[in-house]
Simulated assay, not measured.
Amino acid sequence: MIELYRLRGCPYCRTVEQKLDELELEYKSHNVSLFRFRRSAVKAVSGQSGVPVLVDPEHDVSGMVESEDIVAYLEQTYG
């Protein structure tokens, strides 16, 4: 299952969520802390603390960052 690490109120995260919803993809959402130093789970999967971060084990994606890249990936893979 696709996983999305997100921060509430983040417009970049919302863009990715809208694409996931548009493509009718099931995904698990992980809300992360507002404080970057408390984002150890995000850092573990992506090597950095920014969000959004997408994990798609079915296609060996283990920590994609940057909302534009994520949206392009989703469109190309599932669109």
Score class of each variant (00 low, 15 high):
28 K>P: 05
19 K>S: 04
20 L>D: 07
36 R>E: 01
25 L>S: 05
16 V>Q: 01
16 V>H: 02
39 R>T: 08
60 D>C: 09
37 F>H: 14
65 V>L: 10
32 V>I: 10
9 G>E: 08
29 S>C: 05
39 R>M: 04
54 L>A: 08
64 M>R: 07
10 C>H: 01
70 I>F: 07
66 E>I: 14
57 P>S: 05
1 M>F: 05
63 G>M: 13
61 V>L: 00
41 A>E: 04
76 Q>N: 02
44 A>V: 15
12 Y>I: 14
57 P>Q: 03
18 Q>M: 15
18 Q>P: 14
65 V>K: 10
36 R>Q: 04
52 P>N: 12
19 K>Q: 14
75 E>F: 06
34 L>V: 02
50 G>E: 13
66 E>G: 13
40 S>R: 08
11 P>C: 13
75 E>D: 07
2 I>W: 09
74 L>F: 14
62 S>F: 13
71 V>R: 10
27 Y>G: 01
63 G>K: 13
56 D>E: 08
70 I>P: 00
47 G>H: 11
66 E>T: 14
54 L>M: 04
75 E>P: 03
14 R>T: 15
15 T>V: 15
1 M>Q: 02
9 G>S: 04
58 E>Y: 07
43 K>S: 11
56 D>S: 01
43 K>H: 08
78 Y>A: 00
56 D>F: 01
72 A>F: 09
77 T>R: 13
25 L>M: 09
68 E>P: 08
23 L>E: 11
17 E>G: 00
73 Y>A: 04
